[in-house]
Amino acid sequence: MNMQIVMLLGQDGVTNGAVYALLALSIMLVFSVTRILLIPQGEFVAFAALTMAAMQSGRAVQLGWLVFALAVVATLMDAAKVWRSKGREPWPHGTLGLLAVAALALVLTKVLPLDRIGMFAQALLTIALVVPLGPLLYRVFFQAIAAAHSLVLLIVSIAVHVALVGTGLLMFGPEGGKTEPFSDAFFEIGPAMIASQTLWVIAATLALMGGLWVFFGKTLYGRALQATAVNRLGAELVGISPDLAGRASFTLAAAIGVLSGILIAPITTIYYDSGFIISLKGFVGAIIGGLTSFPVAALGALFIGQAEAFSTFWASSYKEVIVFTLLLPVLVWRSLAHTRVEDEE
């Protein structure tokens, strides 16, 4: 094992780690705001990657049908709610907008020559297809049971994941997909060759984290989401609707998932069921951060990325075993170091 291989594996590790860090962030965000452990997080990643791949290989993109169907169901659910309240409940914001976006994206995937519109337009269309999936999943499957026991939320979350994986097989088929890299350039730094795709992933990850930092630190809506995570009753009492907070966190989760998917699609071959194992690694990062501390989770995710890259080299068939076994000492340490945190007052 020479320096060159170390640099190469390290590069792989950083790329994967950055994506895991993004997914860890997303899982923690959704969990703290809604108490839902977002198992379908990985499906946003896989669906985005496979949609991009389908567009580039000139195959038909079917995801639009699923999004549109969910948007129709969500709209009907809203209509039923307004009708049952006999007009006392106002028509909720957002769902009609989602229906419009879903319809538009569906039409575009059917009329545009998808393999010739360029990577940037393909990415935009992928975002328009997958991001609405986030708030729609929340509206259709979680909003009505938002106050339920967290175990119920977990069960529904698993069910949604299983259903989405099945739908994924139906939409994308059993073959994997891989996309073109954003650019083919390589840079030589010392003994190492740095692929420009690596730099893309790192730059996009940093930009997204910076954007989220500004959103949560500086904007009223970002603070409102944070407040919901800190104290649900307090947030409701100042007029932050839990429905809105839930949809917003799912929208962010879907957006983070789509970007992760677009970023890793040129590096790894993604299958319809690849999302789970990817988001599981993000989840391990989130667990290392105790589902609360993002910097610790990000470091944990980077560590997972490195561990994965190097174990691929040393014992590739035991890659996942090694990565997930690493979780055990962390869990032991967490449970030993855990001090009972008193609730606020």
């Binding site: 009223l220 944070q226 407040a227 104290n231 007029g239 932050i240 007052e345």
Partner: peptide, 26 residues
């Protein structure tokens, strides 16, 4: 507006953020 017994403040946010969020409904 209700000020509940347990106050329900946003403990990990600043005093000013707590107040600003108090105006969220408006």
């Amino acid at each position: 507006a209700l000020v509940p017994e347990q106050r329900a403040l946003f403990a990990t946010m600043t005093v000013e953020d707590n107040l600003v969020l108090g105006g969220f409904r408006r």
